[in-house]
Design a protein around this nucleic acid. Structure first.
Lengths: 238, 238
DNA sequence: CGGGCGATTGACTTTCGTCAACGCGTGTGG
DNA sequence: CCACACGCGTTGACGAAAGTCAATCGCCCG
């Protein structure tokens, strides 16, 4: 599933704003090119890494789409996130020296490898990079707080509305439509992420469609009424 | 609620193994004393910080017990964690330059302040500390994966069993009993953390007690059968 | 063009939430 | 020091939301 690696450089990558948004001097910038040594392609369905694999690198998604998931001893699994271009995967790995989740490509994808030893080395030399690394990790913590909120105190409709708005907002930041998206994941994967069964995901989509809020054709979703979706995320359930 | 601060030093703190477990030379150790400048007492019910407060420091719990919670615009809140001696609070703050949750003392407590600028400065000079900071953040990410698992794919009994085992394990690591604990939080706070209502928490406790797995008297809990609890966390629901 | 995975929908069950009443304990003030 | 009140916890009856099981449909990909 993992294809041969290729050599590259960050300094003129068009995703730099997304995955390395730090102000650097030209001199620092050129040093940073040594941070990402290689890229790797992962075919749809392939594992970028698996739970238990020795930790060595962070990965920046260059193209494509991933999910990360943890698995219990008894075989249930929980999707912990979906990652698209410019987002960082593998932060869970350094806690114990091995990755604690699986990272799986949902479409043919390419990632940049950032050997973590090098990240630490460069962080010591370049404060702006150090700060960036910290911010990336903190953002992940904050994101997960949001997921806990979602899982702990929202009902099915609120969860799905929140999910759709989040997805479309991230896609929009990457130059895609504000109102149309193609889901890269199955209903089951959405359900796992949102803590509901695939049938409930499907039913909730249908409910949204009936209400004229979205148009759903399999994985193609068009948002017809963003305001209505936003209101749904704030419904006081009591 | 926040009492005057006092001056202190890490190098001979009895919690060092818990909150700074890095091998340091005596020279590095003495420099580290400048990392924690002050302590602060927070009375029961008091806020260590609130969502939106400008971020400046991490906090290490020295004595006492805290909860962290996020709040939605419409007023629902979600407990995101409980912190005891040696654990670090405030990692969510650096993402956006302000804390994104509330940290509230559940009993009279004391924390060590670690100004984050200083943490970053020292991290650049002391690789072992840098690594430790990264590990602490990564551990928080992994912990939250566990909570997502819990909220996303466990039923009430499994959640409470998991929660109890986790609490007692952390207490045991601090020298307390493996089988007895005093809950510092209300049923409602437990419920918020576990994504269930306080009545369900109460009922589930009663069910455990009926089954002879635990003994519950208000906030005093004695675990009578750890194995049974462990089995419950792995129950294949199907 | 056909097979199979993924999605949808329906009927029924289960779990948990809701509402309400009651009880226990603790802490405080008379 | 005792009594009372209030917050917290427990328990019961009922309802609602989501899960389960099953049948069918429709895409897509080979």
């Amino acid at each position: 599933m993992t294809l041969p690696a290729t050599h590259v450089a960050c300094s003129n990558c068009n995703l730099r704003d997304l995955c390395l948004p730090v102000d650097l001097s030209p001199e620092e910038m050129s040093r940073l090119d040594a941070l990402v040594t290689t890229r790797r392609k992962v075919l749809r369905g392939g594992h970028l890494f698996s739970s238990g694999d020795p930790f060595s690198s962070l990965f920046a998604v260059r193209t494509g789409f991933f999910k990360t998931a943890v698995t219990t001893p008894d075989g249930r699994d929980q999707v912990t996130g979906f990652q698209m271009a410019g987002e960082i995967i593998g932060l869970d790995g350094l806690a114990q020296g091995h990755y604690s989740c699986d990272a799986i490509a949902l479409e043919d994808s390419e990632v940049c490898l950032m050997p973590f030893e090098r990240v630490e080395e460069f962080s010591r030399a370049i404060p702006a990079l150090q700060q960036h690394v910290h911010r990336v990790m903190s953002r992940e913590i904050v994101r997960e707080h949001g997921v806990m909120m979602l899982l702990g105190s929202m009902r099915a409709e609120e969860r799905l509305a929140t999910f759709l708005l989040n997805l479309v907002q991230r896609l929009h930041a990457r130059g895609f439509s504000q109102s149309e998206l193609v889901l890269r994941m199955t209903r089951e994967e959405i359900g796992s992420y949102l803590g509901m069964k695939l049938e409930t995901v499907s039913r909730t989509f249908s409910k949204f469609a009936e209400a004229g809020v979205v148009e759903v054709k399999q994985r193609h979703v068009r948002i017809l009424n963003t305001d209505a979706l936003e209101r749904m995320t704030q419904a006081i359930t009591q």
